[in-house]
Design a protein around this nucleic acid. Structure first.
Lengths: 202, 202
DNA sequence: GCGGAATTCTATTGTGCTATAGAATTCGGC
DNA sequence: GCCGAATTCTATAGCACAATAGAATTCCGC
C-alpha cells in the first residue's frame, strides 16, 4: 500500500484541499454572497468556526478557490503556443485544454467565472493578472495564424481571443444541465466551429 | 410640450420602472445576494422600507429585472425566423438583435445571466420557459440553414444554438471593461465568425 | 382647494452572519 | 506512551439585513 504519502505536511495539505473543495462546491451552488461559512462547514461535518483555522476570512477562501480554478491554464497554453503545430491545431488544443478541467473541477471553474468579481481589490488584481497572462498567450496563437496566412487577414485577434474564451467559458455554465452533452463532444464541436471561423476563406 | 403622458397610471408605471432600473443597477454591480435593499433605496434617494410599496420581496424585484431583461427577445427572433432571408442573414440578424439591447440595458442582461438562478422555483420556471422559447427559435433558424444546404450537414443544431447564445452572452460580461469595443463592432465580428462556423465548406 | 388614493416615512422585530477568544481534543513522530 | 503541534470545539460579540405595521405626507383629478 505505497499509495499517497501520509507525512504530516502531506496530510495537512490534503485536508486544506478538502476544505477548499467544499468551499468551491458551496460557492458554485449558492454563489459567494449567498453561501454562508456555515454551509461550507456542514458539507465537511465540522463547526463553522473551525474553518477559520484554514482561512482568515471568507474572502480568503474565495481567492483560494479562484486561484485554484485558474491553475495551470497559462502554463499549458504556453506549451501549446511554443509547439510547432499549425495554428488550427493549436486552436483545437487550446479549446481542448480549456474544457478538459470542467470534467473534474467544474465547480472551481464556475466560481472563478461568476464570483471572482467579488474579491477584494488586491486579490482581484492578482487573479486578473494571471487571467491576462492566459489571454495573451491565446491571442498570440491567433496572431501567429493570421501572420502565417492560415487565418483570415481581417481577423481581429482580440475579438477572436474573446470569442474562444467566451465560447469555452459558456460551456461551464450549461454543461451540467444539458442532458446529452459531453466534454469531448463539446470540445470537438467548438474547436471545429472556431477553426472554421478563423481560417482564411477558400 | 406634448411629450410623454402625465396621467396617473403612466406616472405610476414610470416610477415603477425607475425602481426596477435601480434594482437592476445594484444587482448588476453587487450581485443579488451581495446587494441590500438599502443599496437600492440609496440609489433612489428613498428609505429602504419604501421599496416594499413596489415589491413584496427582494426576490420579486429580481424576477421583475430578469423578466424585463428577457423581454422581446423571443418576439423579435420569431420575426427573423419567419422572414424570407437566407440562413446566414438570419444568423447575423439574430446576433444583432441579441447584442443591441446591451447598449442601453446592459445591467438587465447581466442580472438575467448571472442572478436568475437565485430565483425561487416558480419564478425560475417562468423565466426559464421564456428563455427556452427564445432558444428554440434560434435552433429552428439553424435547422433551416442545415436543411437548405446553406449550413454544414454535420452541424449539430443544438450545439450551434448554444454557441450563438454563449458567444452573444459572453459579450455582456466583458464589453463594459474592454476599452475599444463597441456593440456594432462586436456584433459584426461575432456574426461573421458564426456564419463562417456554420456555413457549408466550399 | 378638497377628497382620496398613491407614495414615502418612522420605528421596530427577529433572524442570520462573519469573525474572535480561548478551551478541549486529536494525532503524528520520536 | 509521551510531547507538542495540529485540529476542532464551545461560546459569544457585534453587526447587517429583510420585512412588517402603521403614521405622515404628497399629489392627481375633479
Amino acid at each position: 500500500m505505497a499509495s499517497a504519502g501520509t507525512s504530516r505536511a502531506e496530510k495537512t495539505a490534503r485536508r486544506l484541499s478538502e476544505i477548499t473543495d467544499a468551499a468551491a462546491k458551496v460557492f458554485a451552488r449558492r454563489g459567494y454572497h449567498g453561501a454562508s461559512t456555515q454551509d461550507i462547514a456542514d458539507v465537511l461535518g465540522i463547526r463553522q468556526a473551525s474553518l477559520y483555522y484554514y482561512f482568515d476570512s471568507k474572502e480568503d477562501a474565495l481567492e483560494a478557490v479562484c486561484a485554484s480554478g485558474l491553475e495551470d491554464y497559462a502554463v499549458r497554453a504556453q506549451r501549446i503556443l511554443r509547439s510547432d503545430a499549425d495554428a488550427s491545431t493549436k486552436v483545437s488544443q487550446l479549446v481542448h485544454q480549456h474544457l478538459a478541467p470542467m470534467a473534474e473541477r467544474l465547480e472551481y471553474t464556475q466560481v472563478f467565472l461568476r464570483e471572482r468579481r467579488f474579491l477584494p481589490q488586491p486579490a482581484r488584481r492578482r487573479i486578473r493578472a494571471s487571467e491576462l497572462r492566459y489571454e495573451r498567450i491565446i491571442q498570440r496563437v491567433i496572431q501567429q495564424g493570421v501572420r502565417s496566412g492560415e487565418f483570415r487577414r481581417d481577423l481581429d485577434a482580440r475579438m477572436a481571443t474573446l470569442a474562444l474564451l467566451g465560447l469555452g467559458n459558456s460551456a461551464a455554465l450549461w454543461i451540467a444541465r444539458e442532458p446529452g452533452a459531453t466534454i469531448e463532444g463539446t470540445t470537438g464541436a467548438y474547436a471545429e466551429m472556431l477553426v472554421r471561423a478563423f481560417r482564411a476563406g477558400h
